[in-house]
């Protein structure tokens, strides 16, 4: 019970710090400015063209949130070591695993805060353009994005314990951006490579989290209100459960690896 309380306290401190610091707001402001430019573009004086807005806004917001998470998550542990604030924390009856979970939850809450702000802006922008929102798909997209942030946070913890802050940030960014690329490249390469190459591709496919699986934005973008039975229906409960399990597996594995690295680290 006290572990849960400790997790809550640590998470709250991370969230408050994220909200007080200005990075998130800068990311949000830059993103909003870019979306504002998109909304101000005149497309031949025609109204009701919303797919372009949906696509650019969702992509920008997704990437911006991921950037905020990468910054926050990779910074958490190195900074505690640098500023030596970790010592009084761990001197209390707070286990290292509890500490990690608290930090992870805090980063995820900050991501939810950032993404929540974005989504309010997205919905307001979309409605002001006269567009329809696919509520079912949209809520599923939000949920899957949060799962993605959870996986990314735990991966960043491993990276920040295995290397210095700068390297962890860059590697985390590469993991985020290259995930989709690796996925599509592996599909092409599989046909061209030999048996050994195929085994490597198969292993890569399961070793690296396929973050594209948490991105439902394309269906949200191409949703057609008049054709909702065809373009596109929300995912089934089974698929959502499978995606949840998929995300949780990577989160547990990465958090476990981070814990092992953290435990071996001398204070």
């Amino acid at each position: 019970m006290s572990s849960l309380r400790n997790i809550g306290i640590i998470a709250k401190s991370v969230l408050l710090e994220a909200v007080r610091r200005k990075e998130i707001y800068v990311v949000i402001l830059v993103c909003c400015a870019l979306i504002g430019v998109i909304m101000s573009l005149d497309f031949f004086g025609l109204s009701g063209l919303v797919k372009f807005y949906r696509e650019i806004a969702l992509k920008l917001m997704g990437v911006s949130t991921a950037l905020a998470v990468l910054l926050l998550a990779t910074r958490q542990l190195p900074r505690e070591f640098e500023s030596r604030t970790i010592y009084p924390l761990l001197a209390r009856p707070v286990g290292r695993f509890t500490f990690l979970l608290g930090k992870g939850l805090g980063v995820c809450l900050a991501a939810a805060f950032c993404f929540g702000l974005f989504m309010i802006l997205y919905v307001v922008g979309l409605l002001s353009l006269g567009g329809d929102l696919a509520w079912g798909l949209f809520v599923q997209h939000l949920y899957l994005q949060m799962l993605q942030m959870m996986v990314l946070t735990s991966a960043c913890f491993v990276l920040s314990l295995a290397m210095n802050f700068d390297a962890a940030l860059v590697t985390g960014f590469l993991l985020y951006t290259a995930s989709g690329l690796i996925s599509s490249a592996s599909l092409m390469l599989y046909e061209l490579t030999n048996a050994v190459g195929r085994v490597i591709l198969w292993l890569l496919n399961y070793l690296l989290p396929q973050l594209v699986l948490f991105d439902l934005s394309e269906k949200v973008v191409h949703y057609e209100p008049g054709l909702r039975e065809v373009l596109w229906r929300p995912l089934s409960l089974g698929t959502m459960l499978a995606l949840t399990v998929y995300g949780l597996i990577y989160t547990v594995v990465f958090t476990g690896a981070a814990y092992l690295l953290f435990r071996r680290r001398p204070l």
Binding site: R198, Q210, L213, T239, Y246
Partner: peptide
């Protein structure tokens, strides 16, 4: 070749 991951990919996109 991706098995269940491929199935999820087809569902999500």
């Amino acid at each position: 070749f991706r098995g269940p991951i491929g199935r999820l990919h087809r569902e999500v996109k």
